[in-house]
């Protein structure tokens, strides 16, 4: 039952990725790949949360896998990796925490009661910290394959060895 729930959520995460892909006007040949990558990223993130690895580490794992697949896809579908990786990780961007933090900051300007103030402050800092660390983990996760291969372009990386490149 939990497995089914995770899989359904992942498929919807893929659909969210497609929404952003269309908004960013990606080439048509990349859309199906973006759906799959968004779903795989979601699957990893939701499983990680289910196994209590935490949302930050879960996002990091998901983004890393997306980063690795995006390099393979860049060869198969002839587009730079960021065209695949950015729409696929955007469903994981902590928009929810970002605006919770913003709402908290706005609320802090109006609260007089000390206890309520402290409570809101704690929640705001918590949401802000989560947002920052999830963002950093997404950005580094996507960049990891390039950081590890230490090449300037994927066309020179060893993922590419033995593959015929037609541009």
């Amino acid at each position: 039952m939990i497995l089914l729930d995770i899989i359904t959520k992942s498929i919807w995460a893929g659909i969210a990725a497609i929404g952003f892909a269309i908004l960013f006007n990606v080439p048509r040949r990349t859309i199906f790949a973006i759906w799959g990558m968004g779903a795989i990223g979601g699957l990893i993130k939701f499983s990680a949360i289910h196994f209590e690895l935490g949302i930050v580490f879960g996002s990091f794992l998901g983004a890393t896998i997306i980063g690795i697949i995006s390099i393979q896809m860049a060869h198969l579908r002839k587009s730079p990796p960021l065209v695949f990786s950015i729409p696929s990780v955007i469903p994981m961007v902590p928009g929810f925490f970002a605006y919770k933090m913003m709402l908290g900051l706005i609320a802090l300007t109006a609260i007089e009661n000390t206890d309520a103030y402290l409570q809101t402050l704690i929640e705001t800092v918590n949401n802000g910290a989560k947002m920052m660390f999830i963002l950093i983990s997404l950005g580094t996760g996507v960049a990891i394959p390039m950081l590890l291969s230490r090449k300037e372009s994927i066309k020179k990386s060893k993922f590419n060895k033995g593959k015929k490149v037609v541009v």
Partner: peptide, 22 residues
């Protein structure tokens, strides 16, 4: 209510920001 505005989330500026910092 919480999810109706998530399509506006500035994903590209934020992810590119981390990429640039790295």
């Amino acid at each position: 209510f919480a999810t109706s505005v998530l399509f506006l989330v500035p994903g590209v500026p934020l992810i590119n920001s981390v990429t640039d910092l790295m």
